[in-house]
Design a protein around this nucleic acid. Structure first.
Lengths: 250, 250
DNA sequence: GCTATTCTCGTACTAAGTACGGGAAGTAAC
DNA sequence: GTTACTTCCCGTACTTAGTACGAGAATAGC
């Protein structure tokens, strides 16, 4: 019942108006700021205080401008989020030219993505439900296609493989970030919460319903080398893709 | 400046209070509803109208209750979300007992996850940034460990592998859902938007900066068999994991 | 200067999360 | 049954956030 529901609007940003943006007004009062400046400020806030801290008011304050002024540059907050994503994706060093050994190149690309997402921890959560088509995203996709070219996949298959890698990286980084935040909590102020969580897990471990889980929880938490873990999982993923070359669709 | 910032509170739900919930009041007015009922209503709304449609007011209306009554059952909305996740994860048929061929079992498990996420399309977006420890989640994790046992990985490695699979499934389903929503848009009302997007992509394809991307966009969109695609990618992932058994950490 | 145009932003409306506190509705003890 | 106590229900109201509106300010071209 009632209205079409918000689900319909998800991703409903007009890419033409957003990314082409061909307006060049020669008359009238010149804008004091720019889309890029606003986007950068929003990204900075998200990096520092989390995505939830990005409000039109906080962004406006960061720029030193009235709230409603933002709307001369950006139609709405959802669009701003899309701009933020593309901006963040542009925030990485120029990718090295592919060596031709595509498995190696793909790993390099994924490591770059991981670094990027660590710099912008809100990215994994922002990416799903959203299909960004900004210049940086497109450029990065182009690069991925270049990397995957020697793999001999079809175009669509290459895109698929790329999306697989991106999904893996996003998922893994989300996992890493959640973990490190939990650790930070334990070491810092909200110690009670960490303790409560530990108590709870111990209570779970007591239960006979989860024998294997109990065993794992009982294991001494081995010090994890996050980089090595990532590299290892990534290697498996890429190996799987490599094995697929040839097997793909008969 | 100001307050600790919301980023600190992410995942800051006390699992002990949430999942153990030992209160059993024998006196006083008995509750007319239950946590489970509220959670189910919220999940229903999310399934139907998207996660954004889940508001305390809409959930209360669905139950037929005043808004503030919800707070007798649930401390805040964030907690409700966590309950929703665990509830959704519990919404799958009892997993078949492992056959012992772990690669096959793992694939079965992943297919189940995919079905689940298609039934609850908001799940992929809700999972990151949140570490759910509810009974259904734990039970499912236990099952995953059972499935992976024959693989001979260590406990922590098994958890890692499981999280890898989950991340892959979530990422892929998010991709699938985004795609199908775009298709639905094209076929239905907001046709202009789909056209704008198409125009935009054509404009991009014209540009000489993205030769490979242009080529892919020019390809006739081949009719994709979503199930087959998923199975194929999944197979590669599992193969990668299988190859890792033994290689893992010297 | 005049004017058309564009940017700026105070005001205000709406939606959503939720603190507060007064009742209403039960149960246990008498 | 009455009393006392406990727990639940939820109207009211405050706060924060997104954003429509429109008046005023600033600027380029005439």
């Amino acid at each position: 019942m009632a209205s079409p529901g918000p689900a319909d609007r998800v991703g409903g940003v007009d890419p033409e108006a957003l990314w082409l943006d061909r307006r060049q007004p020669r008359r009238g009062r010149p804008p004091a700021h720019s889309r890029a400046e606003i986007t950068a400020a929003a990204v900075m806030i998200a990096d520092t205080d989390g995505l939830a801290a990005v409000t039109m008011r906080s962004v406006a304050a960061a720029i030193g401008v009235g709230v409603m002024s933002l709307y001369s540059y950006v139609p709405d907050k959802d669009t701003l989020l899309e701009l933020m994503i593309d901006h963040a994706i542009g925030d990485q060093p120029a990718p090295p030219t592919p060596t031709g050994v595509w498995t190696e190149d793909l790993r390099t690309l994924a490591r770059g993505q991981r670094d990027l997402m660590h710099r912008h921890p809100w990215l994994p959560a922002a990416l799903p439900e959203r299909q960004t088509l900004g210049p940086n995203t497109l450029a990065f996709t182009e690069h991925a296609l270049a990397v995957l070219e020697p793999a001999g996949l079809g175009g669509q298959d290459a895109l698929e493989a790329f999306s697989l890698v991106t999904g893996f990286v996003a998922g893994h980084v989300a996992y890493e970030v959640a973990r490190s935040r939990a650790a930070a909590r334990a070491g810092r102020s909200a110690r009670e919460l960490a303790q409560a969580q530990e108590r709870y897990l111990h209570a779970v471990a007591e239960s006979p319903n989860h024998p294997r889980l109990s065993r794992v929880l009982a294991e001494p938490a081995r010090p994890v080398d996050a980089d090595a873990t990532f590299d290892r999982l990534l290697a498996h993923l890429v190996d799987g893709l490599a094995a697929a070359r040839g097997t793909a669709r008969g």
